[in-house]
Design a protein around this nucleic acid. Structure first.
Lengths: 214, 214
DNA sequence: CGACCTATTGAAAGCTATCAACTGGGGTGG
DNA sequence: CCACCCCAGTTGATAGCTTTCAATAGGTCG
């Protein structure tokens, strides 16, 4: 299941003494596991391009997608020197990595990560509200709005790069419930489904109301 | 509903030009709302002593306690220049506050907050797993273990400084379900309830197993 | 064109929420 | 000092939503 990471860091690659270069960049294919929950946490990473999901597992196999990341977002966080989540690309991505010790030496990097952590923490707070207090329909509406950049006009269609199972694991639902929610949103005319992974938001106002105007 | 903040910052207090003092400390009574979701986010805060909960509201009044904070934890995060959560003390607390601009001027502060943000983000990831994938009984077990410091021996009793409603809002349940879960844990002999807010963990192993060994 | 994987839809079961009644402890006031 | 009141918590019955199990449809790739 683990796929190979395609590494293209140019002249910096594979030189241990160059880990503190501004950024060691990795180009990674879609559906690649970049790091594994529990592995020793040596490096901290930023998404440069693409989309990455962070997941956690329960001993019995239940999975939660805890965070969806886009350009600028940071991952590879450590709890007790080990990665707290697995990270998997959803699309072809570019990821830059830093030695953890660079945080202390590089104030510019530290300042950037600080700002980003604050933003990600706020997003997690919203997600706790979604997971703890919203119905299935509301969760899916919230999810679609979150993926749809503000400036996106009505005509544009959104490509979901996640399966129903991945969306379900993100929203704390089952894949069947997610599918039913999509169908219900379609039935109500709030979204149009061109294909299973091509969505268009038809009635943004109603969607916002469903998602709690968040 | 809003309670008055009792301010005792000694000689630094109420001097606008001293906001960048090492720490403007507030001593706050229990059950005091320190800041309100949506208010302009001027300052960033740290818990020095006590316990604080961060909450978010849906337009229809549904509430989620998104984070429980103890000494060292940071709050007062901003989304679009406004506080993303309300913050309320659970116990008498001491809170230190900083101007947001201090983050850029004070590298020591920034480094401390960076480390703390990382830890809090990891905790939020765990909480997403709890909210998204755990049953009511598992959630309550997880909650109790989280409150029970590792070193705490069997004999010690834990004082819950939260009502059933607050615990429910933290775990994404109703107060009745939380109460039933407590009763079930008691019935199974995993915990003892001396009073409604005095708990003793009797069988830590079983509790860990329930909580997914997290 | 067929195989396979993902998504959709249906029916039934299960868990939690909701509504409601009751209990108990603490504090207040007589 | 005791009785009563009030609020938090507990417990019960029922409803509702989501999950589970199962079968069907759709799309993609060989």
């Amino acid at each position: 299941m683990r796929q190979i990471i395609e590494e293209r860091t140019g002249s910096f690659s594979r030189s241990p003494q160059l880990v503190e270069a501004p950024a060691a960049n990795l180009r990674v294919a879609a559906h690649t596991t970049v790091l594994h929950e529990g592995d020793p946490a040596r490096r901290i990473m930023e998404v440069v391009e693409g989309a990455v999901m962070l997941t956690k597992l329960l001993p019995d196999g239940r999975r939660q997608v805890v965070e969806l990341l886009g350009p600028g977002d940071v991952f590879g966080l450590a709890h007790d020197e080990a990665y707290a989540c697995s990270a998997e690309t959803l699309t072809p991505s570019v990821i830059s990595t830093h030695e953890r010790s660079a945080l202390e030496r590089d104030p510019v990097l530290a300042a950037r990560l600080l700002r980003r952590f604050e933003a990600q923490l706020c997003v997690m707070h919203s997600h706790a509200l979604v997971l703890g207090r919203m119905s299935a329909l509301e969760r899916v509406a919230f999810f679609l709005l979150r993926l749809m950049p503000e400036g996106m006009v009505g005509g544009a269609t959104l490509h979901l790069s996640m399966t129903r199972q991945e969306i379900a694991d993100f929203l704390g639902l089952t894949l069947e419930t997610v599918s039913r929610a999509f169908s219900e949103l379609k039935r109500r005319g709030l979204v149009a489904l061109l294909r299973a992974d091509e969505v268009r938001i038809q009635d943004r106002g109603s969607m916002r109301r469903l998602a709690g105007a968040a």
